[in-house]
Design a protein around this nucleic acid. Structure first.
Length: 101
DNA sequence: GAGGTGACCCAAG
DNA sequence: TCTTGGGCCACCT
């Protein structure tokens, strides 16, 4: 259950992200005092279903792999600043959308 | 108890 | 600007 400290911490940080803001996996891991950015992704893949996973993106500004289209809908609703490319590809405006605790 | 995998990150070319 | 390679930690079987 929720006896998992790491999982609970990850979910807690993600839920702590206000709407219109996003955090990179590395930032979430750093918030936990760890560098396990991949572990965050692993945990999110299983337990992320209970948290706004779309508010967690890569440090490059791209959403989670194979979920960008799904996250895009949430970003538009929450008013998250997005940067659109000429190819129709979008990415997060980290300079302002990046939530720093 | 040990091995494999992953919604990743950083540095260099 | 984009692509490649290596490394890191935690979770699952």
């Amino acid at each position: 259950m929720v006896a998992d400290d790491f999982v609970s911490a990850v979910l807690g940080v993600v839920e702590s992200i206000p709407p219109g803001r996003v955090m990179s996996y590395g930032d979430v891991a750093a918030a936990l005092g760890s560098r396990a950015a991949r572990a965050v992704g692993q945990t999110m893949a299983y337990y992320g279903s209970t948290v706004p996973w779309w508010r967690v993106v890569k440090a490059s500004g791209h959403p989670a792999t194979d979920h960008e289209q799904r996250a895009l809908e949430y970003y538009r609703v929450e008013g998250t600043p997005l940067l659109w490319s000429t190819s129709g590809v979008f990415r997060i405006d980290m300079r302002s959308a990046r939530h720093t605790p």
